[in-house]
């Protein structure tokens, strides 16, 4: 940990970064914090807890205000996937953002069911094995169609339309949100119309969702949102060969034609 703090301090001193978005200990609570070279003493409170925050979402807020600052950000595997996608969507400039990698602990990786619990370059922690688990999708795929419908409708009916899933999402960076479009979703009315509210968001996650699972953690009604978005993520890679969160390469094929000869998907099995 001391080594890590020293590393950040060095980055400050060399001028490589003008701010570091990390987590500090505030009493007993770990909270996200922007460390700056003006207050190097704050680095003493720097901590790396076994909890996650929507760091890239916070970064976007900072970048909107200070678009030309060189910033460092503490990234886990999920944060890095989010940053990659933000670069592709031209929300951040990669040359201004320095990734400072944290490998997640085995406990955290297990509780997140994370398929990639480490970023490319690790400055703190040890790489642990990824967790491959698609039991949640399989459980629903094996249900008969009517049961599936009833299951999702009963889950969606718990929604209180708090927009928590959207607000915490690193990939929800649009200036105007379709979930606040009065022609599609009646605004100012709760609970929302189902399943349109959730399916529109689910479709929007296609080609974007980086499977961090923060939406599900944030949901006060415990709707298994991640399962839904994981499914869309799978469809995207299955039909269109696109996995969001990878560095560089093609952009979201639902929004960009891409260079690969205007690929169209194979027909889906309708059974």
């Amino acid at each position: 940990m001391e080594k890590f703090k020293k590393y950040i301090k060095e980055l400050f001193e060399s001028g490589e970064i003008e701010g570091f978005l990390g987590i500090r200990k505030n009493g007993l609570h770990p909270v996200p914090h922007l460390f700056t070279p003006e207050h190097p003493e704050e680095l003493e409170t720097l901590t790396i807890p076994d909890v996650r925050y929507p760091m890239t979402e916070i970064l976007l807020t900072i970048v909107r205000k200070y678009p030309d600052k060189k910033l460092g950000i503490m990234v886990r595997g999920c944060d890095e996937r989010a940053l990659n996608e933000l670069v592709k969507n031209q929300k951040i400039l990669p040359e201004l953002i320095k990734h400072i990698g944290i490998a997640c602990s085995a406990d955290l990786a297990a509780s997140c069911r994370c398929a990639q619990p480490y970023p490319e370059e690790i400055h703190y922690g040890e790489k642990v094995a990824p967790v491959e688990d698609r039991s949640d999708i399989e459980a629903i795929d094996t249900m008969p169609q009517e049961e599936r419908f009833d299951y999702w409708m009963s889950e969606f009916s718990k929604c209180i339309k708090c927009y928590g899933c959207r607000n915490i999402c690193s990939m929800c960076f649009c200036d105007q949100c379709t979930l606040e479009d009065n022609d599609l979703i009646a605004t100012g009315q709760a609970p929302p119309a189902i399943p349109i509210f959730h399916l529109i968001r689910a479709f929007h996650m296609a080609g974007r969702c980086i499977d961090c699972g923060l939406c599900e953690e944030a949901c006060p009604a415990h709707i298994p949102l991640r399962t839904l978005y994981r499914k869309v993520r799978e469809s995207m890679s299955g039909f269109l060969g696109y996995v969001s969160g990878t560095e560089g390469g093609e952009k979201d094929p639902l929004e960009f034609l891409g260079s690969e000869g205007y690929m169209v998907p194979s027909k889906i099995d309708e059974k």
Partner: peptide, 14 residues
């Protein structure tokens, strides 16, 4: 592309 993904999503929610 959109229709294909949407069909798969519809199928998933029953």
């Amino acid at each position: 592309r959109r229709v294909t993904i949407l069909k798969d999503l519809l199928k998933f929610v029953g």
